[in-house]
Design a protein around this nucleic acid. Structure first.
Lengths: 329, 329
DNA sequence: ATGAAAGCGCTAACAG
DNA sequence: CTGTTAGCGCTTTCAT
């Protein structure tokens, strides 16, 4: 392993001069010296040891990113967007998935902090008090997507209530009176929001939103599939359904296909997320599209603005989603 | 930030004793002293600084993982599997996506090395000579999935030739004589393998494998979609197609749906990967299933076996995929 | 069984 | 403009 001292020796200067040359805003170095140093760096293939730089107290140029599940296409797209931005800004991502386990989530948070990430970005937190402490201690934390009702931590999200309302209004506008909802797991703010929006839209149209029209399900293919089965088993069932995520909707479509239920003729479907996959479903899904790149941009910006700022006050960004009408409704 | 010295002071011992208590195989400590130290650790919420430990020369307990694209469901499932194992072994993952850019790939490799990852796990490398140097320097490197013909670096992969052959034989066994293939991008070993398997199976059955039956396409939804359009445009076209990945196959199904081509009646489809999504497609896809968890297990095992071993000789693991027949064929 | 001290590679303050 | 030095938090060798 080649260190700064090796470079210094080869260039015939002291180690600090090597730093002066390599560091953007340190101190002026004579052109000739600089050239010698650069040549030595080149020759030896020297790269500063990021660990040592970090220990010295500098930033680690790393961000911890936690999502419930990498295979959920929405999170996959979110991770991709965040990663691209991080890469552009020379940040590295430490990633983990929580699988909706609070225990796993807080273990990851601790591990990330042990490694002195410059910031924490996470979807779906149960570890609230812990995160409050983290944020208070000066490490920027941004909560994405799954946001608690009130948060002293910065948040970036899509307006789920509005999105659900748009979906249901669209469906009702097409003449549907029995509009069901497949929600996320109970006790999750995102689930509640989408249910709230559904309720609001139903009530605004004087449609009855009874129990049989609501099914909770995990955000998975199987979750959507099974929820659809349950919902369709009831007589006087839904003629349309608002599904809280693309993955679940893909499961719904599969369930319909299995049972000869035609979409949209027998059942209209609108889902929340609008990932690329939704456009390639059979039939292509009408969706409430989350502005993933806005979300990622904003989250990264909040981080960049706050890193090293001590203890800035939290910001809250909420984006309005768009309805994209395709053939499933 | 609370350091080891703080703990030592509170416990009334010297800093080294704190380490002795906390480190598994260091040195015996008197029961009473140990209890005092543990109490102090608890009280202060002390956690060793991973950066300092790493600088001292210890392992970083981190693995760099590079895939072409996090949104490809196969890679997403692979990442999930690797991440679970890493987590179990108290490793953290630094992740990046290359987007098939050699430039981006090698930048990531450098950045990961600057951070002293204990090992590198990557899918699809163009940066061969660079990686050879890395492996020679003692950092375990394992190439996944996309493996060059001959490699001095450890590899773990699925037998693509065999998989393609199984797929085509299955199709030919159903009476198809014009079996097309949608391959990956040209100049990629995985693409070649699948084409080779296709050719072998076609020739073994005396079927003509002409140019019009082969389309190259990127591993994306759009790639599969467009390739299907091109292939289906030709007269005397394929009655069956082997698609080199699930994502592409999803695109193919969408294209078929758009043009009223029924699957499997008008076109039988078999794809490579066997991710969860393939089971939820309309119709459910017949697939050549990659043993993702075997791959992940093996890769992580190779790493664990080799980390700190200096310069072990490379291993090469190849798994045979299974054909899972569903309704698309 | 415990303490003291060296040193990992680097940055920045201090001193020419 | 350049060199010297302290110190980041830790592990480990060497003393006691």
């Amino acid at each position: 392993m080649v260190t700064r001292a090796d470079v210094a020796k080869l260039a015939g200067v002291s180690p600090s001069v090597v730093s002066y040359v390599l560091l953007p805003n340190s101190r002026p170095v004579a052109a000739k010296t600089r050239a010698r140093v650069l040549a030595a760096v080149e020759e030896l293939g020297y790269r500063p040891n990021a660990i040592a730089q970090a220990l010295r107290g500098g930033p680690t140029s790393s961000i911890g990113l936690l999502v419930p599940d990498h295979t959920n296409p929405f999170f996959a797209e979110l991770v991709r967007a965040v990663e691209d931005l991080a890469f552009q800004h020379s940040y590295v991502l430490l990633t983990g998935s929580t699988g909706n386990s609070a225990e796993r989530e807080s273990r990851y948070v601790r591990v990330f902090l042990d490694r002195h990430v410059d910031a924490l970005l996470l979807v779906g937190t149960s570890a609230r008090p812990e995160l409050d402490r983290v944020a208070d201690s000066g490490t920027p934390v941004v909560l994405l997507d799954r946001v608690p009702p009130e948060s002293t931590i910065s948040t970036v999200r899509t307006d789920g209530v509005l999105g659900a309302r748009k979906a249901v209004e669209h469906l009702a506008g097409r003449g549907h009176r029995r509009v069901g909802i497949i929600a996320g797991p109970p006790d999750l703010a995102v689930s509640d929001d989408r249910v709230t929006g559904w309720l609001q839209a139903m009530q605004a149209r004087d449609l009855t939103a009874d129990e049989s029209l609501l099914e909770h399900a995990p955000f998975t293919l199987g979750g959507g599939h099974d929820a659809a089965m349950r919902m369709l088993r009831t007589r006087d069932g839904a003629t349309a359904v608002f599904v809280s995520s693309d993955v679940q909707a893909l499961g719904v479509l599969a369930a319909c296909d299995e049972h000869g239920i035609r979409v949209p003729q027998d059942l209209a479907v609108v889902s929340f997320d609008g990932t690329e996959l939704s456009a390639y479903a059979q039939p292509p899904l009408t969706v409430v599209q989350q502005p993933i790149s806005h979300i990622a941009h904003t989250a990264v910006r909040r981080i960049l603005d706050n890193v090293g700022t001590g203890e800035p006050r939290p910001t809250h960004d909420t984006f309005a989603p768009d309805l994209i009408v395709r053939e499933s409704s």
